[in-house]
Computed example of a mutant assay.
Amino acid sequence: MTHLALYQASTKFITALKVLLLLSFGALLGACSTTKALNSAQQNQSRSLQPQVQLQGRISIQYQQNDQPQTVIVGFDWQQTPQDLHITLSSPLGQTIATIQENASGARLEQAKQEPKVAANIESLLIENLGWTIPVSGLKAWLQGFDLAANGQAIALPASDYYRLQSQGWQLDFVSWQADAGIIHPKRIDLYKNTEQVGEMKIRIVIEEWQ
């Protein structure tokens, strides 16, 4: 086999592997439909917004770039405290794509073999450097099953499947919920928004582990 043939075969294999990994991640993102439903006592359980949380999961993002549809699927590790927020994004192979930190001083993004980038907030950093973004400011409450009123007061959302919410210009569907060590929180959240920067955005978030 010639070097060209070997190169072409290798390229096809890598492309097929990438497709397989994306399909596998997509299956994981859809697997939450089998989550056991909360009972009535759990649905009505009193909840409060936690100042410190750590969770892991997967995010699927559909958007447009140069009028072409794009899909990104990443793993994420989310560590939130009252002072700052750390997010690690990883590829289907588990390789770190980016690490992000946000505090009162602003936001900072680090990628391998690149100079760190800074901005006023994470949303700006993502759109400028990765071409897509997620509503981080809202997710600080939404991931726990809460929304914030205009005065900043946390409002607990009904822990019922397919609960729909309009907030901060986004439509959110809280598709399913789960209980981890007595803590009730969303299992899957679907988000939709039509943006000027990247067209119609569809985001699916699945929380796989809550600590």
Rank of each mutant, 00 (worst) to 15 (best):
N66E: 15
L49E: 03
S91A: 11
Y192K: 12
T96H: 02
N39M: 00
P158S: 02
T15F: 10
T195K: 00
H3F: 12
A107I: 02
A31W: 04
S176R: 10
N121T: 04
N121C: 03
L55D: 04
A120C: 01
L23A: 13
T11S: 14
T88K: 10
G131L: 03
K193H: 10
T99Y: 03
R188F: 01
I87M: 03
D161T: 08
S124K: 07
E115S: 13
K36H: 14
I87W: 00
Q52A: 11
S90M: 13
K187Y: 04
P69A: 09
K140W: 09
I189V: 15
E110V: 13
Q43G: 06
L172D: 04
D84Q: 15
W132E: 02
K117V: 11
I183Y: 09
L165K: 05
T11E: 15
G138A: 10
L38F: 02
D161Y: 02
P186I: 02
L191A: 15
T81P: 09
K187P: 01
G26I: 03
L22G: 03
L148D: 02
S91E: 13
Q178N: 04
R164Y: 09
Y63G: 01
L157H: 05
A159S: 13
E115C: 07
D161R: 07
G182T: 08
A37V: 11
E209C: 06
L55G: 03
S105K: 14
L29H: 06
A98P: 06
T133A: 04
K140V: 13
T15P: 01
K36W: 06
Q64T: 06
Y162H: 15
L143C: 06
S40Q: 12
A98S: 11
P69D: 05
A41Q: 12
H185C: 09
S24V: 07
T88M: 02
I183W: 04
F13G: 00
Q83G: 08
N194M: 14
T195R: 06
T35D: 13
Q101I: 10
V19A: 14
F174Y: 14
R47L: 06
L23W: 08
L22V: 01
T34N: 11
T15I: 15
L4Y: 13
L172Q: 05
Y163A: 11
K202L: 15
A119Q: 00
